[in-house]
């Protein structure tokens, strides 16, 4: 994360209308050092105890704005998730969903899947973040661990093209089945494209006839 100077902190052209093309800067949060504070030390220590390959599975631990994020290698995601759910001292029994994020500048880690976990037993929250390269967008499915991630994974697939291996029926959920592309990726434009349905095409706004 870079330091911001002033509220407006203009760099480059200063164009903010959007018509000059939006400029996006990439950022990567830094790993936190122990002690993390709050219940975060307890959660990480317990996970380390219950999951011996902890150091191999966890890429980094980020503590930011009072929230704990564990960045996990995708090969290990399933085991870590199962441990988090089943270990008595952890008991993250609810997965609130999957949110995809696309970082095109983050080479070989372009697509991220973010899981929000909740432990009702201990009244704690935890975030898991997994990344995958755009060229091989595979992440293991967690439907077997938390059945409720079913639709959320379908949405992340629909919007970002992340393929969740082991999902019982990974199909589009919000967009039509024959929709080309994944709309919430950064390389997918907001508008200006023709909307296609089976047997009909609705032209993009700049190609429609004008009403005079």
């Amino acid at each position: 994360m870079s330091e911001q100077k002033g509220s407006f902190g203009i760099q480059g052209t200063g164009d903010t209308s959007g018509y000059g093309g939006l400029v996006r800067s990439s950022f990567s949060p830094t790993s936190a050092q122990k002690p993390y504070g709050s219940y975060f030390d307890e959660v990480t220590d317990e996970l380390e105890r219950a999951f011996p390959e902890f150091n191999d599975a966890i890429e980094k631990v980020v503590v930011d704005r009072g929230e704990l994020t564990l960045h996990i290698k995708r090969q290990r995601l399933f085991d870590v998730a199962k441990t988090l759910r089943d270990t008595e001292t952890l008991r993250f029994e609810v997965c609130l969903g999957v949110s995809g994020v696309h970082y095109p500048e983050d080479s070989q880690r372009e697509l991220h899947a973010v899981y929000e976990l909740l432990s009702m037993t201990n009244n704690r929250r935890l975030r898991l973040e997994v990344s995958t390269p755009d060229s091989d967008p595979h992440i293991p499915s967690l439907v077997e661990v938390w059945a409720g991630t079913n639709w959320h994974e379908r949405e992340a697939y629909d919007m970002f093209g992340i393929i969740f291996d082991g999902h019982p029926a990974l199909t589009r959920i919000l967009m039509p089945d024959d929709w080309p592309g994944h709309p919430q990726r950064k390389d997918y434009p907001l508008g200006g494209i023709s909307v296609e349905y089976v047997g009909a095409t609705i032209p993009s706004p700049d190609n429609r006839r004008s009403y005079r």
Binding site: T16, L96, S99, V101, W151, H152, E155
Partner: peptide
């Protein structure tokens, strides 16, 4: 779930919608 890249616009906005779940 809000992600900011330090700019004047959100980088990513996702809602965990109760109706959806």
């Amino acid at each position: 779930h809000l992600v900011s890249d330090g700019g004047t616009r959100p980088y990513r906005v996702h809602f965990r919608a109760p109706s959806f779940s």
